[in-house]
Every structure is written in structure tokens, then in C-alpha cells.
Nucleic acid binder design. Structure first.
Lengths: 233, 233
DNA sequence: TTAACCAATTTGGTTGACCAATTATAAACT
DNA sequence: AGTTTATAATTGGTCAACCAAATTGGTTAA
């Protein structure tokens, strides 16, 4: 039987969620409306019974999801979003699960498929050169029989850059490393031989060079065929 | 003529970028290899001439993009990604522009189009019910002539949830509020009358209900026709 | 009455000191 | 000599005090 001497003590992580829950209740109870200025950090930390640093972390998280907006030395304001949406989004944030590998891969496929399509239309000469450079580096490393996973990653990052869509590029930057690190453990790559992979890369490069978005999309789908299969299982 | 008495003083934002640049140089010069443990925060802050809090913020940013991994009370470690990729990603992070509105909308279209397609296949009965509930709320608010932008947003968030892809759902949560707030200023919505919008929503709901992914995709494209046009301009 | 200015207060941002968990080191016992 | 245990040093995490910018309210001069 646990004595549980300190029932009020929570881990910092839980404290952050507690703060978000409390702020959510304030909004639900209409004590805090969209557009309103939040009470000062000191006031809220005292009101919620947490330290100011923990409260700041909670607000930082809310700001990351765009639910509040901070103005330095001035105050923090609730975003001008409807109460229902605010409520739902906060519930989502509170229940956020750590992303599963399959969702990561699936999302990567979606984003990169669109990225190469856009790249074929929008790429600058400079970006095309960067892609070709990365492609050559991949070839040189690969023909020596060495593992060229680094060069492969770099090649795909350059594809995302050439989409000329800053959001796609950012999102790819966020989800790619997580995929790479899990890749090593899940052993999904190195199924085919390197010469096939080189040719698949070359097809993508050519399509982008020729400003052919449909061909670029098709070439990428072929290249990612294994990944597509994986997502269906 | 400016006297510039404190040439070394930078804004905190710039200090963070300075720290990332310095860490990047360490990696380029092979003084820090993938998988290595970084020097302690105190050591690095002294070495770089910044306060520990600023250094922590820089490392927090690197961790967000998956370039380093923190283990509490133990140390911070460089992710096991190739040097070339690390270098390129850090350069990307340093040059990250604040996302432009068109990229945001374009990415939202990509993600939500795929989300409804997946939702039509994977949605649970509970998720379908949530979507229908949000749809009815939208109708009830809309037929009174009131602005139902909140209910509309909620409806679309439920669609993303029903995709059963945690990453898509998270990304939608991140980019949606930013779009909404800019929507008000850019005045892209309220072009069509509410009865048309209700029917478009209804078509999406029906397609998801009937587990028809292609129809769901098509219905959403019709609904987002104005947005597609906007992205092409 | 109005506008401009100034001081006091409030704000988020920043810092150096402290904390507990972890790890490295060395001593001690078998 | 090898293993275990005790101890000291190092680590990232946390906190309360401090800082400068921004706001606010009142006062004064036009």
C-alpha cells in the first residue's frame, strides 16, 4: 500500500498539461475570451500553484500551436479563434500521442510527392544544380559499395528545398530526422541494389530538369514503392 | 555616425543563431561527430560567450528539428545522422524564413486532401459521429446568417483527426491557426453563399460515411476550389 | 479643454544560484 | 584480482531574484 505522502506533486511534464487544462477551462467558462489578454505570468503561476518557469513552458507550447500570441514586455493574448475550435485544439494538444513510425513515413510520402511535383515547375537553376550535386555525391559514394545513407538524405532534402514552399521544407526538416533514426532500427532500406537506386534518383532529377511534374511524381512513386507497400500493411 | 559602443551585443534571437552556427562549425571541423556527447551546457555557454539560458534555447531548437537528443541529467547527444545532412539541415534552420501565406495554404490543401482520403478508409464510427456533429453545428449556425467560421474550422479539424494519422493531425494543428488569423486580413473566404458551403460539406461527410476515398478527395477539391485558384496566382 | 510629458508600475525576458538524478571514481571487502 | 559499495563530481532541470522595455496614469503647460 502506497503512502503517497505528496499527492499534489506532479512531474513537470504533468504540470504543463495541468496549466493548459486550467487555461482551457478559463476559456470554456468564458472567463477568458478570444483576443483577451491573459493575466500576467506571475498572477497565473500563483493562481495555478506552479512556478513561473513551468507556466512559461505551458504558454510556450500554446504559442507553438498558435493558440496564444506573445508580445514582449506587453502581454500574452488569446488568438482570435472561436471558442469551440480553441477548446478542441487544446484537447488535441493534451492528448497528443508520440508520433508512430507509420504515420511519419506516410506523411513524408505525401509531402515529398507534392514537393517534387512543385519542384519540377518552380525549381531555379541554382536549386537544380544543388540537386544534381547531391545526386553525384550519392553516386560517387554508392559505386564504391559504401553506405550512402547520408548522401541519400541530403538528396531528398534538396528536393524539398526546390519545391519553393517554405512550409513543406520546414515540415520535411522536422519529420525527416525522426524517420532516419528509426530507419536504422526498422531496417526498411537497402533492399534493392545501389544501381537501381541510382537510376531511380536519376529519373527524378531528369523530370525536374525537364520541368515535367507528372513524370517527377511518377518517378518518386517508383522510388518509394517499398515505402508505399510498408504503409499499406 | 554611430559610435557603436557595444559591438559584441546581439539580440537574444541572434545569439541563438550564433550558437547554432558555432555548433555547426564544430561538426564540420569534425570536433563533434554524429552520436557524440556535446560538452556540458556550462562549458559551451562559456566557450561561446553566451549565457546558459540562451545556449539552452539554441539546443532546444536543435532538438525540435531532431538534430540533437537530450537525456536528462546525463547529456545532450548529436543525432546519428551523416555530417553532410547535419550541415545542410543546420544551414536550413539558420536561414528559415517566416512562412509565407501562400505556402501555408498550399500545404494545408495537400495535407487535408490526403487526410479526407485516409479518413474515408480508416474513420471509426466515433470519428464519423464527431464529423457529423461538427457539420450539424455548422449548419445550425450558418442558416441563421451568422458567421460560422469557428464551426467551419472545427469541422475541418475533425476531418484531420479521422485520418488516423497522428502526424498529419499534428501538422494540421500547427498550420491551421496561422492560416485562420491571416484569413481575416486576406479576405479569401465568404465568397460563396452558405447553402453552397453546406452542400459541399455534406458531400465530404457522405463520401467519408460511404468509405469512398476518391469521392471524398473530389468533394474536398471542389470545396477548396477558390483556395486552389489562389495558390496558382 | 487638450495635448505632451514624466514617473511609477507592470510586463515578459534573463540571469546566476540551487536541486536531484546520473555517472565516474575510488575504496573496501571477499 | 575481481566485484561491490560508497563517495565525489558532473549533468540537465528548476527556481526566485533581477532587468529593461512598455504601458499607464496623473500632472502640467499651451
Amino acid at each position: 500500500m502506497k503512502t503517497n505522502l505528496k499527492p499534489e506533486s506532479l512531474s513537470p511534464r504533468d504540470e504543463i498539461e495541468t496549466v493548459i487544462s486550467k487555461i482551457r477551462e478559463l476559456i470554456i467558462n468564458r472567463q477568458l475570451e478570444p483576443g483577451d489578454k491573459l493575466p500576467s505570468e506571475r498572477t497565473l503561476s500563483e493562481k495555478f500553484g506552479v512556478s513561473r518557469s513551468q507556466l512559461r513552458l505551458a504558454i510556450q507550447k500554446l504559442e507553438f500551436y498558435g493558440l496564444v500570441k506573445k508580445y514582449p514586455k506587453s502581454g500574452t493574448f488569446v488568438s482570435k479563434i472561436g471558442v469551440g475550435a480553441l477548446n478542441s485544439m487544446m484537447a488535441n494538444i493534451l492528448h497528443l500521442q508520440t508520433p508512430d513510425f507509420k504515420s511519419l513515413v506516410e506523411t513524408r510520402l505525401i509531402l515529398e510527392t507534392k514537393a517534387v511535383k512543385l519542384a519540377a515547375v518552380r525549381r531555379t537553376e541554382q536549386q537544380l544544380y544543388q540537386i544534381e550535386l547531391a545526386h553525384e555525391a550519392y553516386i560517387n559514394k554508392s559505386i564504391n559499395g559504401e553506405n550512402a545513407i547520408d548522401e541519400d538524405l541530403l538528396f531528398h532534402l534538396k528536393l524539398a528545398e526546390a519545391s519553393c514552399n517554405s512550409v513543406i521544407n520546414s515540415l520535411m526538416l522536422v519529420i525527416t530526422p525522426e524517420i532516419i533514426t528509426n530507419f536504422v532500427t526498422n531496417k526498411i532500406c537497402d533492399k534493392t541494389n545501389f544501381s537501381t537506386l541510382i537510376k531511380e534518383h536519376q529519373d527524378i532529377v531528369n523530370a525536374i530538369k525537364n520541368n515535367d511534374p507528372d513524370q517527377a511524381t511518377e518517378s518518386l512513386k517508383i522510388h518509394f514503392n517499398d515505402l508505399y507497400q510498408y504503409c499499406r500493411t
